[in-house]
Design a protein around this nucleic acid. Structure first.
Lengths: 208, 208
DNA sequence: CGATTGTGGTTACATTTGTTCACTGACTCC
DNA sequence: GGAGTCAGTGAACAAATGTAACCACAATCG
C-alpha cells in the first residue's frame, strides 16, 4: 500500500502532530519555558533527535501551538457575533459558547491563558498578534451594529479590546471549574453574564 | 560589633531577601516552573545548599513572592478608592496610580501577571486567594458608595471582580510599554481610561 | 529500475540539575 | 564565659538535559 505521492509528508505531519499533542498535554501542569525537548519526544513516542526535523526548539513548538490554539478560537468569535436581536439572548449565547469551547478544548485555552503573559517572548508576541487580529474583527463587527452610530474609532477599538479580554477572563474562569458538579459552573456563568450585561449597559449609554 | 540580640535573624532575612530579589530578577525572562534552585543561589551569591535554610523548593519561594508582590498592591487599592467626588477625576487618578505602581515595581507586577495562570498550582492558588481578598475589599468600598443603593450582593461582587481584573489588564498593558518614549504610554493610558469610563457608565445605569 | 532524498533511530558527550552529608564558625542564652 | 544552636560552605552523587555524528531504510523521482 502507498505509492501515492505524499505518503512521506503525511507521516511527517503525523509525528509533528504527535509532538504538538504531547507538548500540549505536558503543558497542563507546567509552563512552556520549562518544557524539555526530551520530555516531549518521550511523551510522543519518538527519538529525541527526531524533534529537530520539525521544530528548531521548544520555543518554536510553542509558536506553532499558538496557531493551533487560536485557530479554533477563530470560528468561535464569528459565531458569537451572529445576528440575534435580543441583547440578553446574545449574551447568554456567548457565555454558553465560551463554556462549550472551554469544555471542548481545555488544553488549548489553558495554553493561551498561561502563555499570554508567560516567560517566552516569541510566544507572547504570537498570542498578542493573534488576539489583536481578533479584536480587529470584533471591532469591524461592532461598527456594523446600529447602536455604534457616533462612536469614534478609538472608542470602538477600546470596546473590542474589552470584549476580547472579557472573553479570555471568562474562559479561564470556566477552566478553574473543572469537575465542579454544576453549582460552581453555574456561578461562573452567572458572573460572566452579569459582567457582559454591565458592559452592554455602558455601551448603550456611552454617548449620553 | 553586634552582640545585640537578633543579629542572626537579621542576617538570615537579609540572605532570604537576596534570594527573593535574585529570583524576581530571573523571572523577568522565564516562568517560575523553569526556575532552578541553583540558578537562584548563583544569582544571589550564596551556596546552593543555603537555599534550603529558607525555602523547601522554588515553588515555596514562589508563594513567598506572591505575598511580597501583592503586599505592595494592597496600599494601592486603598488609595484608588480615596474620596474624590468627580468620577473622571477618580478614574484619571486610578490610571495614574496604576502606571506609577508599574513603573515602581515592574518585576512584581510581571510576576503576578505571569504566574496568575502559570504552571505552578500552589502559586496560582496563592494569587487567586489574595486577589479574592482584594476584590472583597473593593466590594466593601463600593457598598459604601451612594450610587450602590439597590445593588444586590452578587452584583457588587461582580463589579468588584471586574475592577480587579481591569486593574491587572491595565497594569500588564503598561508593562508591555517599557521604554516607549511617551506616545505608546499615552495610548495605553487613554485606552485604560476609556475602559474604566465605560464600566462607570454601565454602573450608573445598571438599575435602569 | 537505480539513485537520491530525508524521516526517524542509535550512541555518545559535556553540562546542569536537585539533594545528601559532614563541616565550620559566629551568634545566642544561661 | 562556656555550651549549644544554626546559617552558610564544600564536595560528592545520580539523574536528566540539549546537541552532535553516524546509520537505516522506505518513499520519491529520473
Amino acid at each position: 500500500m502507498g505509492h501515492t505521492p505524499g505518503v512521506r509528508q503525511a507521516q511527517k505531519q503525523k509525528t509533528r502532530q504527535a509532538l504538538l499533542d504531547a507538548a500540549l498535554g505536558l503543558l497542563e501542569e507546567q509552563s512552556l519555558s520549562s518544557l524539555g525537548l526530551r520530555e516531549v519526544t518521550r511523551a510522543a513516542g519518538v527519538a529525541p533527535t527526531a524533534f529537530y526535523r520539525h521544530f528548531r526548539s521548544t520555543e518554536d513548538l510553542g509558536v506553532a501551538l499558538v496557531e493551533e490554539a487560536l485557530g479554533s478560537l477563530h470560528s468561535m468569535i464569528r459565531t458569537t457575533m451572529s445576528p440575534v436581536e435580543d441583547d440578553d439572548e446574545r449574551i447568554a449565547r456567548a457565555v454558553e459558547l465560551i463554556a462549550g469551547h472551554v469544555a471542548a478544548h481545555p488544553a488549548h485555552v489553558r495554553f493561551v491563558a498561561r502563555e499570554r503573559h508567560g516567560g517566552v517572548q516569541p510566544v507572547r508576541e504570537a498570542i498578542r498578534e493573534q488576539l489583536a487580529r481578533f479584536a480587529e474583527e470584533v471591532k469591524a463587527e461592532l461598527a456594523t451594529d446600529a447602536s455604534a452610530a457616533g462612536w469614534s474609532d478609538a472608542d470602538l477599538r477600546m470596546l473590542a479590546g474589552l470584549y476580547v479580554d472579557q472573553m479570555l477572563i471568562t474562559a479561564s474562569l470556566f477552566l478553574e471549574t473543572p469537575a465542579a458538579p454544576r453549582e460552581e459552573h453555574r456561578r461562573a456563568a452567572a458572573t460572566a453574564t452579569r459582567q457582559l450585561r454591565l458592559i452592554g449597559v455602558g455601551r448603550r449609554h456611552w454617548l449620553d
